[in-house]
């Protein structure tokens, strides 16, 4: 495995209008690096869902993307409230988002299942009151 290319972003939880900006940047970088469009699409959709989640559910955090020859690893860490029941949160349609989030176009309870769908592996490490770290891998 050769030297990884790494990107790191602070995701601002106080400003919804910038939510998703890190994913747009990662998508651009991966295009510049010449990765296949299908791979880029998987990585960017999964990261975008996670990035939006950090903003609407966890008051922001950090996003890291490590790019290797054979795998892309996305790590999203926040110090938000944690997820009390991960199995429940993973169900399509389960959402704790309020009406104000729905008027912004989110909160259908589809993000986490979508992240799982678009990645080859996904791990959720969450502690109530401490935060959540989600690690996703997409193999090339």
């Amino acid at each position: 495995m050769s030297e990884a290319v790494k990107f790191r972003f602070d995701v601002d939880g106080s400003d919804f209008s910038s939510a998703g900006a890190a994913s747009v940047m990662v998508k651009k970088k991966l295009r510049q690096l010449g990765y296949p469009p299908e791979i880029i699409r998987k990585v960017s959709i999964a990261m975008y869902e996670g990035e939006i989640n950090m903003v609407i559910h966890a008051n922001g955090g950090t996003a890291e993307v490590e790019v290797y020859d054979d795998v892309i690893i996305i790590t999203l860490s926040d110090t938000g409230p944690g997820i009390p029941d991960v199995a429940l949160a993973m169900q399509e349609g389960y959402s704790t988002a309020r009406e104000n989030i729905r008027t912004l176009g989110f909160g259908a309870g589809m993000g986490l299942p979508n992240m799982k769908k678009y990645t080859d592996s996904m791990e959720i490490d969450t502690r109530i009151g401490e935060g959540t770290t989600i690690t996703m891998k997409v193999y090339l």
Partner: peptide, 12 residues
């Protein structure tokens, strides 16, 4: 909102 543009970008 900006997420409309970003979502369209994610979906190519």
């Amino acid at each position: 909102n900006s997420q409309v543009i970003r979502t369209a970008n994610m979906m190519d």
